[in-house]
Design a binder for these strands. Sequence first.
DNA 1: AATTTTCATAACATCAAGTTATATTAAATA
DNA 2: TATTTAATATAACTTGATGTTATGAAAATT
Lengths: 316, 316
Amino acid sequence: MKIDPNHLHILSAIIDAGGLSEGAHAVNKSQPSVSRTIATLEARLGFRLFEKGKRPLRPTEPCLLLAEQGRAIAQASERAAQAAIQYSGGKSGTARIAGTPIFMDGVIANMLASFQGAFPQVTIHQSYGYLDDLSAQLDAGSIDLAICPVRPDAVQDNMAFKPLLRGRNVIACAPTHPLARRSAFKLEDIAAYPWIAPPAGSPLYADLRGALATIGISDFRVSFTGGSLASILSIMAGSDSLTVLPYSVVFMQNHTKLVTALPVKLEHPERALGLVWRADRPMRPAVKRFRRYLEAEFQGLANRIEQKGRRAVWRS
Amino acid sequence: MKIDPNHLHILSAIIDAGGLSEGAHAVNKSQPSVSRTIATLEARLGFRLFEKGKRPLRPTEPCLLLAEQGRAIAQASERAAQAAIQYSGGKSGTARIAGTPIFMDGVIANMLASFQGAFPQVTIHQSYGYLDDLSAQLDAGSIDLAICPVRPDAVQDNMAFKPLLRGRNVIACAPTHPLARRSAFKLEDIAAYPWIAPPAGSPLYADLRGALATIGISDFRVSFTGGSLASILSIMAGSDSLTVLPYSVVFMQNHTKLVTALPVKLEHPERALGLVWRADRPMRPAVKRFRRYLEAEFQGLANRIEQKGRRAVWRS
DNA sequence: AATTTTCATAACATCAAGTTATATTAAATA
DNA sequence: TATTTAATATAACTTGATGTTATGAAAATT
């Protein structure tokens, strides 16, 4: 014997609503419709579901057992609908994101935390990589979204790119650094200090070399290389080392009082930190929501940077 | 949004069976049928349930959530089917029975216990009453089955009657009673002992008077009246009292060694212990099953009584 | 590259289930 | 007890979902 789940659902609705007409209304059907549903159900089961000839419809014993299951079915159905809505709205699901380590640790991590607070049902898979690697992963479909500095003209054909923040590097050091405490200094003074270099393959490393060249420093001493943002900050805090970091990273770390930027203007390639994804594939709702969230956060960040920038003087 | 429970069930079947065709087979449908079901479901939900263009069908994230609910639905549906089968087979449900107190306590109670052992899901509501009362309750529909001694010609038109045991009353006493220990005694000896009388309104009380008259005793001393079988047995065990009981009751109490029957043949109205129910109403499966059970039990009891009867000598 | 397996689509048939209109009937009321 | 009222059952019809078979298309596999 197999019983149509819909029938059980209707049955439970009748019981719970306390009448055939009320039950019919509860499931958005006409009274004759549910009346016949009950009739056919009774015929199949071989026993009555409601006592014969009783006007306030009186359920029989087995009817109540079946209605119980009907309620379970209605509940499951409702849960499913909710799950579908949650997913469609990007409030549940998975987003796989990856980006350059310094940005991910220095800027995105904060936003990620607040996103998870707002949408706890969304699972975020985060990983690290540089542009080429990220592109390959996007192509392979193993990540949904890449976050990295890109020259807009370097974006692949099948990729969409959404710039979030103008790229700008600065010379960073501990707030306790001798240069940071001097109101003014000559560019030559910089040469006296050791450097922390980003990982050798990273764009930031190339930026470091290029930037120092533009301010006339070609020969510099590297005291540390290859670490993550956390280690760079630690080392900087305990030494007089200098390094090159994106300004947004320094800005976001402002509250930690671990790092500050020297008022020196650096030249470097025209890149923008932005989001990259495959334009030819539909984006899952959770990814879409995360993307929108990041865009909004970066808009706020850009504004705050802008405000602060108006009060600072940068020497070139 | 509302999702058809059947669709969710089909979805879960596909997931669990590991393929569209297998899933279709699992729900007794053709492959194209479930294929289209999935297609329409996807269209309604607005997202894919299976990754596009992957041949070993790969479920998407929300698909698994929905399938979960589908399983719950399948389970509820199955439970409902089981409940229906249980009920139809009389293995669950309720039977409301009533009968004369002495019989209920002395004979039926035992059978009831074994029935409940065999069919624990059947709820038995037991109550007491004499024929008129029982008939009224049957008519009112407050009981399903009456068990009492009836003169077959006294059965109402709308009632069915199934005799279970020929009625036969005996004089009962404790096994330690002086008369019980004597191999022979005169009927006049009986007159010397006090009597325990059944409740005044009961047929048994009328039987007691009638029976004693037939053996020449018209004047007898009643030492106790009005109790239940348990109290009658207790009093008899602790005294030299006599009483009149149906032989089946004495027989069933045999193992307790609390009561025995004197070998005296009593005359009384031609009644049979039997089942009475309303012939014009369908009998619920659980009641039907209980009725059949009782009939079988009484068949066995009748045989045992018959066997023992062949070895006994009764004086009239 | 050929084959196999698996899923999607087309075209059609059928039946379950929806509808409105109306008849019945149990309960309430006069 | 007759009448009224409200609730359910039935009738007649329409529609849409779902079933079918036959067949096409596309991954995976060999």
